[in-house]
Write a protein that binds this DNA or RNA. Structure first.
Lengths: 107, 107
DNA sequence: TTGACATATCAATATACGTTGATACATTTA
DNA sequence: TAAATGTATCAACGTATATTGATATGTCAA
C-alpha cells in the first residue's frame, strides 16, 4: 500500500486558490450543466481568449476539471470526485479534534 | 427584505483564498480543538510573530475565525458557521444545474 | 495547399500576496 | 512611573498570480 494517506497540503491549497477567483467560479458555474466547449465559455464570459485559456489551465492543474480535444475544439468538464473530496475536507476542517477545549495557556 | 440573497462572490473567493495557504491550514488545524491563545500558536507553529499575526488577520478578514482580547492576550476561534456555509457551497458547485447535458455547440 | 479558425502558449506588465524586521500600542508587573 | 510583555501594524522587499497582446500549433474547409 502506497503512502496515499499523506494529505499533500500543497495540492489542497492549490485547489483552494483555484477556487479563489471570480472568473473561475463563473467558469465552474457554466460547467455545472455538463461538458462545455471553450467557444461556449468564450461567449458566455466576457473574458479574452488567452485569459480564459489561462484560467482553464489553472482549474485543470488544480484537478478540478478535465479536458478533452475533438478536432479543433476543446471541451472541459468538472471533476465531481475532486469536488466531493474538497467538500469532505472543508467539512472536516472545523470538526473538533479532541474534546480538549483549550486549557488556559497563559495569565 | 434586504438583498441578502446576493451571493457576494468577492467574499466567497476571499474565503477560498484564505484557505489556500499551508500556514493558515495549520493554524486552522490547531484551532480545531477549541479557542487558542496567540502565544500557543506561536509556539506550535514555526512562524515569526508578525507573520502569524498577518495570517490570523487574513483568516479573520475572510470570516473564518473570530478573535477576542483578554488582558494582553488574544484568543482566536474557528467560526463553525462559516465552514458549514463553505462546505455547502463546495458541495453545490458541481451539482448539475439542469439536466441539459451540453448540447453540441459547434462542429 | 492555402487560408480561416479554435485554442494554447509566450513575453511583458500590473497587481496581489507572503515574508521579514522594526516600530507602535496596550496591559501588566515591579 | 518605568520596564517588560503580548500582539498588531507598518515599510520594504520578493515571489506568485492575473491580465494583455502577440505568436505558435493543430485542424478543418475552400
Amino acid at each position: 500500500m502506497a503512502v496515499a494517506t499523506t494529505p499533500d497540503l500543497e495540492a489542497i491549497t492549490r485547489r483552494f486558490r483555484a477556487l479563489g477567483d471570480e472568473h473561475r467560479l463563473k467558469i465552474i458555474d457554466l460547467l455545472r450543466s455538463g461538458e462545455r466547449c471553450v467557444c461556449e465559455l468564450t461567449d458566455a464570459l466576457d473574458v479574452g481568449q488567452s485569459l480564459l485559456s489561462f484560467h482553464l489551465r489553472t482549474l485543470r492543474d488544480a484537478g478540478l476539471v478535465t479536458d478533452r480535444r475533438e478536432g479543433r475544439w476543446a471541451y472541459y468538464t468538472l471533476d465531481a470526485d475532486a469536488f466531493a473530496q474538497l467538500e469532505d475536507f472543508v467539512g472536516a476542517l472545523p470538526s473538533t479534534k479532541l474534546s480538549t477545549n483549550a486549557a488556559r495557556c497563559c495569565g
